[in-house]
Design a binder for these strands. Structure first.
Lengths: 222, 222
DNA sequence: CTCAAAGATAACGTATTTATTATTGCATTT
DNA sequence: AAATGCAATAATAAATACGTTATCTTTGAG
């Protein structure tokens, strides 16, 4: 067979992640290992391995004799997550500007920006969110620090979870795009300080908006 | 019974960590799951769970049919780790200065500094390293971001691994102490910017020294 | 003598079974 | 009636057994 059959453990991780992000496994709910095994139609062992991995990624909590708990995200959690992203992505932006990248290297970043602008024009929030994710992932990749990539990836997962409920509450993120262009230009120009400071401000602003939104809507979690 | 008997999985994590830090399980070496199970006198299952956890923490790598590989740390890895610590700890310092802590809150930090100074006076490098760890851990704790605490903890683990071979190559870290005092004072004064910038410089300096040291001694890994 | 193929061995991934532990409910005693 | 203790049940933790896959070695043929 040409397709590489991936192991049950791998599949369990993917499936559980997908179900957590989709809300099928809602934040704050408890589930037995055996229940999840039935759901995924495999035995408990690979499920348990997946659960262990996901626990390490902060998506759920393993409570002996109680089952696994899908971790809810409080506004405080979101504030913490945004602070981590702010610091690490700013660093990545600085580094991306320092090491000189040619146009080809920056192509993916440019495309993400274009896609965001197009999404704004057609008020397609889902498409915007997807392109925004790509922008941030690509920025971090250009930063060249694999550990920052890993950590930022986890934190972004959490942001993505929360976005389901917040994306449609907020105004169109038109200002975001100007920030992105500025950061892009700074990277291309090798202006590390601008890249860093501007992206930093961008993230802090995003955090402020989100926290405001959550408290205004009295969203205690998720 | 008053003592909490901890599970085999927990014990496996502790024991493996200790053996990795002590060098008994040396960086770059391969080990079979069954071999580790024999070593810890338990079955493969808890060992495997521990290995999965430690893989998530970046201490080792799981290679199918090859066994677990204790990850070596290259100079590039150390540079990455220091960069993460620089960003996250600086943020913690800034936050620690912002939220006002009374003297009692800062007592542990002060004690760590005193211990470092005493260790310098008696040229006890091990004691200095231990107190330095405490200083950084306490700083991050005062920052109040639990995710930063977790990440910084993991990164510090890695630094600790490398320090075994680097601590005795370097000059006495007398300059470090001045930095620590400055950061401490800034936190007490609520001077967030100084706390942040100073700690940032402190970490960047430490990184530069370490990387220089590693390349000078042609340490490709450890 | 070299290369390829096949078989054997060893290690991991998965499953099943067994044991331990915690919680809940019921009964008994105060 | 309330509290405590015991028993039963349910869920996780651990061990062992099984199957699959990859690698290495050996043998045979070119």
């Amino acid at each position: 067979m040409s397709v590489k059959a991936l192991s049950n453990s791998q599949r369990a991780i993917q499936e559980l992640r997908a179900r957590i992000f989709s809300g099928e496994l809602a934040a704050g709910t408890d589930h037995l290992e055996s229940e999840l095994a039935d759901l995924l139609e495999m035995s408990r062992t690979p499920v348990r391995e997946a659960v262990l991995k996901l626990e390490g990624q902060g998506l759920l909590e393993l409570r002996p004799r109680k089952g696994v708990r899908i971790l809810p995200l409080s506004p405080d959690d979101m504030a913490e997550i945004y602070d981590v992203l702010t610091e690490l992505e700013s660093h990545a932006a600085e580094r991306a500007a320092t090491s000189d990248h040619d146009k080809e290297d920056l192509a993916a970043l440019a495309r993400a920006i274009e896609d965001m602008e197009a999404a704004i024009d057609s008020t397609d929030l889902d498409a915007w969110a997807e392109a925004d994710d790509r922008f941030h992932a690509e920025l971090v990749r250009l930063g060249g620090n694999s550990r920052i990539q890993g950590i930022a990836g986890m934190m972004s997962d959490q942001v993505r979870r929360a976005r389901t409920s917040t994306l449609f509450m907020r105004p169109l993120p038109t200002k975001s795009n100007k920030d992105h262009r500025t950061v892009y230009q700074a990277i291309q120009d090798g202006d590390a300080e601008t890249a860093r400071d501007c992206h930093r401000q961008h993230r802090q602003h995003a955090k402020a908006i989100l926290v405001e939104l959550l408290s205004k809507h009295r969203l205690r979690h998720l």
